[in-house]
Design a protein around this nucleic acid. Structure first.
Lengths: 118, 118
DNA sequence: ATTCGTTGTGTTCAGATGGACATAACCAAA
DNA sequence: TTTGGTTATGTCCATCTGAACACAACGAAT
């Protein structure tokens, strides 16, 4: 989980998919927790919202990023597919690229910015 | 003006500023056209909207990114300040970094994505 | 003084977005 | 067969967003 609050990267693809830190963190939380609802709790979002995001991601690929099952002793659960892990890893790599190689530009962009009250 | 419709980069700063291709293209259009309204026309957005974006950007820096004047023979106009040019250049550099150094990840992320009807 | 294109502002309205609830379906284990 | 935690889905509502208009202020050139 990236804990740099200063910068976040959001990609808009031509397919209509938008993928940013929210979905990346959600994928990672699902991977670590083994369920969508636990991931949602950890990220302080409703299950409804977490599930919607997963549905949206899955809908943009022929194979889902998250494989879920319901029922059973533990109620069910969810895991990342190979594709899901790959998407997460690629996004993290782009984030790292930006942070490392783009440090100069980011620092300059940030320099002197004023917080603006909403 | 970046003409790769496939990917766009949006940065969220802690100051509250969000800066993506829309604002970058707008800055560039202002630089090339010399006015906010002409830039807005070129980007097919209302003057109201273009002006609001400029106001938002200016508000997030101690010195404005766009310097505007009104009245006169040509009605007025707007130019980029040094800071404005620098912000634009830094954003473009980050875009290029992603496209070049991140080509592999981006290609893989894009691979097999399905267009999803709204 | 008039002109003319631009800047600067306000207002209204439809549509998108996300939060908050509610509820059914599922199924291994006890 | 009951239990319990999870997945799956629907609905309502406050809020945010952006599009669409409308209009005053400005000032160099004529």
């Amino acid at each position: 989980m990236t804990n740099d609050p200063r910068i976040s990267l959001r990609l808009h693809f031509e397919s209509g998919l938008t993928f940013g830190r929210g979905k990346a963190d959600l994928l990672q939380a699902i991977q670590e927790q083994g369920s969508i609802s636990a991931a949602g709790r950890r990220m302080k979002m409703s299950y409804r919202r977490a599930w919607s995001l997963v549905e949206d991601m899955n809908a943009h690929f022929p194979e889902p990023l998250v494989d879920s099952s319901r029922g059973g002793a533990k109620g069910g659960g969810a895991v990342l597919t190979d594709r899901g892990r790959q998407v997460l890893a690629d996004y993290r790599a782009l984030e790292a690229l930006l942070r490392d190689q783009g440090a100069g530009q980011l620092a300059r962009l940030r320099a002197g910015q004023r917080s603006v009250p909403t």
